[in-house]
């Protein structure tokens, strides 16, 4: 049964990922007084990319060609490990916070290789920036996850989500509030969203994630884009499941509960996408050389969250 639920969760995240991006784009368009594209458009864009030719630069090596597979693999692992739909499933105890962090770091390291293996200055620039962001956000990632872990007494994301689902919301949300804010900082930085990166930019000099994939085309591009959407969806669902731990599927897995969990999943995804779109519509992107302010703020908030968690478990 747990295997079924694991597979269900895995494919649910995979299926929902393009829609997440579609919803964010749609809401952003609405904020700009536009109608915007249909939310199903990302699915079609993936499909059409899969059928296109690939043009690859002659200055690249075998590393360029394995990058999409490693990045996509890392995203798939995140989809399987992060409790987005159900808790207590087979992969649960593997979702140790440090393992999940390292799997995500592996993906970003390879994405950086992809940007560097082109001989293009844009790709190099994006790689340098991505590496900066990915490495400097690391302390905030581990501190905020560790404070959630101390709070819940479990070192797997699964156990953390289970603890949040089992506790009374009012009692848990106060000590966790600062940590959750830090997690949102992490979410935005890891997924190349505002204020760290502008996902909709066409100007190379303002790009981070986009600059690294400029040289990819066809199926490889589809894999990289899809990977970044999956990562966004999985992390967004993790934060949503902690902020609003209702409706997540717990054992015993009954059919009715599964249906409720599906509905809850859709609602949380929608709300999360709305929040991201709202953030992106109301703030501006930060100058890259001010990024250390963002990172230090994230770390300080995370440390504050850790202090609160420690105090709250002590009393």
């Amino acid at each position: 049964m747990t295997v079924t639920i694991l597979i269900l969760q895995f494919f649910l995240v995979l299926a929902a990922a393009p829609a997440t991006v579609g919803i964010v784009r749609k809401i952003k368009a609405r904020f700009q007084n536009r109608r915007g594209a249909r939310i199903t458009l990302p699915y079609w864009s993936l499909l059409s990319l899969l059928r296109k030719e690939m043009t690859i630069t002659r200055h690249s090596s075998w590393v360029f060609r394995i990058v999409p597979f490693v990045v996509f693999g890392s995203a798939l692992a995140l989809a399987a490990l992060i409790p987005s739909f159900a808790v207590g499933i087979l992969a649960a105890s593997m979702s140790n916070i440090f393992l999940v962090g390292a799997v995500a770091a592996l993906g970003s390291a390879f994405l950086v290789f992809g940007g560097m293996d082109t001989g293009s200055t844009f790709g190099n620039m994006g790689s340098s920036r991505e590496m900066t962001i990915a490495s400097l956000i690391e302390p905030a990632v581990y501190v905020s996850l560790a404070s959630l872990a101390t709070l819940s007494g479990s070192w797997s994301l699964d156990g953390i989500a289970l603890f949040f689902a089992a506790s009374k919301w009012v009692e848990i949300i106060l000590p966790a509030s600062l940590t959750l804010v830090a997690l949102v900082f992490v979410l935005l930085a890891e997924n190349a969203r505002y204020p760290v990166d502008n996902p909709a930019t066409h100007l190379e000099l303002t790009m981070v994630h986009e600059a690294m994939v400029l040289e990819y085309s066809g199926p490889y591009l589809a894999m990289l884009e899809y990977a970044s959407w999956i990562k966004l969806t999985a992390m967004l669902m993790l934060v949503m499941n902690l902020v609003a731990p209702w409706g997540i599927l717990t054992s015993p897995f009954a059919l009715g509960a599964t249906l409720i969990a599906l509905v809850a999943f859709a609602i949380k995804l929608g709300v999360g996408a709305f929040v991201i779109a709202f953030i992106e519509s109301t703030i501006v992107k930060m100058r890259f050389y001010r990024m250390q302010e963002y990172m230090s703020l994230a770390l300080i908030v995370a440390l504050g969250g850790l202090a609160i968690s420690l105090v709250s478990i002590a009393v």
Binding site: H59, S61, A109, D117, M131, L136, P139, V143
Partner: peptide, 28 residues
């Protein structure tokens, strides 16, 4: 907690050092 943050920073920067090394020597 502070030690944890410091070790995390060090391990993050170690990734940069070696990604930089591999990419500037072998890639492009």
């Amino acid at each position: 907690g502070l030690v944890l943050a410091a070790v995390a920073l060090v391990s993050g920067l170690a990734i940069v050092a070696f990604v930089k090394m591999f990419s500037s020597v072998f890639l492009g």
